[in-house]
């Protein structure tokens, strides 16, 4: 089991202990405050991953071969999920971040109330992050070095 897989397993274990969906959502509200502050300039339309009811902004970069990103949302529950995604993906080698199989939010025991529609929304965010990791990886391969951080 690699690090990324281990982190997802840890999340599942933690949430299984919480039990019911209300406890899970309340816990996510708390995790929201742990998400690192996001630079204001990230919250631009070009960085937005639009969902139906909440907004998410992402901006990623490569640092010493690793995937790093800033993220924010206008809703606390989604911020809590971004914090979990950050634990899984941020700081991982680009190859691992781009190629990982991400699934923790789909576990019915974790967030029983997350129906398909909501799962899809979080899935879009995860897919956007992995796409960006893939692009950074390709840039590195094309240029033979670290791609410059976006301004």
């Amino acid at each position: 089991m690699d690090e990324l897989e281990r982190e997802q397993a840890r999340i599942l274990e933690e949430f299984r202990e919480l039990g019911d969906p209300f406890a899970c959502y309340s816990y996510l509200l708390g995790l929201a405050s742990l998400l690192p502050p996001c630079p204001e300039e990230v919250k631009r339309p070009e960085n937005a991953v639009e969902g139906c009811q909440s907004h998410v902004w992402l901006r990623s970069r490569a640092e010493e071969g690793c995937f790093r990103f800033d993220a924010d949302s206008d809703t606390y529950i989604i911020k809590g999920l971004l914090y979990l995604l950050m634990n899984v993906l941020d700081g991982r080698p680009l190859e691992a971040a781009a190629g990982a199989e991400l699934y923790f939010w789909k576990d019915p025991l974790l967030l029983g109330g997350f129906d398909e529609h909501r799962q899809k929304g979080i899935g879009y965010v995860a897919a956007a992050l992995q796409r960006q990791a893939g692009q950074l990886l390709k840039k590195r391969e094309d240029t033979g070095g670290e791609p410059p951080a976006e301004k």
């Binding site: 209300f22 009811q53 909440s54 206008d74 809703t75 606390y76 529950i77 109330g113």
Partner: peptide, 15 residues
């Protein structure tokens, strides 16, 4: 505020 409508509706849905 500062909870968003989505947060509140999700918390209510869970109940």
């Amino acid at each position: 505020p500062p909870l968003q409508a989505y947060d509140i509706a999700m918390l209510l849905d869970s109940q």
